[in-house]
Computed example of a mutant assay.
Amino acid sequence: MADPKPALILHLSAGGEPLIFPLTADSSEAVQDKLPDLLKHGGVHSLETRDGNTVSVNFVHVAAAYVDDLSRKGKFGLSV
């Protein structure tokens, strides 16, 4: 089994391809817990990516956001 590779997936209100930000395992849980509130109320949130960079996201412009595991094969994103 591959090591988990969590990532924040953002779909912007303006459309286009989703933005994908690789996260560390520790930061992915914290981000996932905050997503419902950030999407509901908007606001800017900064997070650290797996490669050590800091990204600030203005959630006013985000239509959908979720944390997914990039190491999964065959399925990606929201599925029923």
Rank of each mutant, 00 (worst) to 15 (best):
I9M: 10
S46N: 07
D3I: 10
D68V: 06
Y66A: 07
L78C: 11
F59G: 00
G77H: 04
V31E: 00
A63L: 10
P18Y: 02
R72K: 15
V31Y: 01
H41W: 09
A63R: 05
A14M: 10
S46C: 07
T49Y: 06
S79W: 12
G43P: 08
P36Y: 01
V60S: 14
L8A: 07
V62D: 02
S46W: 06
E48T: 14
T24C: 15
Q32C: 09
M1E: 12
L8S: 00
S79T: 14
Y66N: 12
F76Y: 05
F59N: 03
L38D: 01
G16N: 01
K5E: 11
T54A: 03
D26N: 14
L38W: 00
D33K: 15
A7I: 06
A65E: 00
S27P: 11
L12A: 06
R50L: 11
H61P: 13
F76H: 08
M1F: 15
S79G: 15
A64Y: 07
P36E: 02
A65T: 02
V60T: 12
S71V: 15
G52T: 14
V67A: 05
Y66M: 08
G77W: 03
L10I: 01
N58Y: 03
L10Y: 02
M1Q: 09
H41R: 07
L19K: 09
H61R: 15
G77Q: 12
L19Q: 08
G16K: 05
S79E: 13
S13L: 10
L47N: 02
V31S: 00
G42M: 03
G16P: 02
G42C: 02
L47G: 04
K75A: 15
L8N: 01
D51N: 05
A2Q: 11
S46A: 03
E48N: 09
H45Q: 13
P18G: 00
D33N: 14
H61M: 11
D3F: 10
F59L: 02
F76D: 13
Q32R: 09
V80D: 14
G16R: 03
L8W: 01
A25V: 11
D51C: 10
V57D: 00
G15A: 00
T24F: 15
L12I: 05
D68S: 08
D51E: 13
A25D: 14
S13E: 14
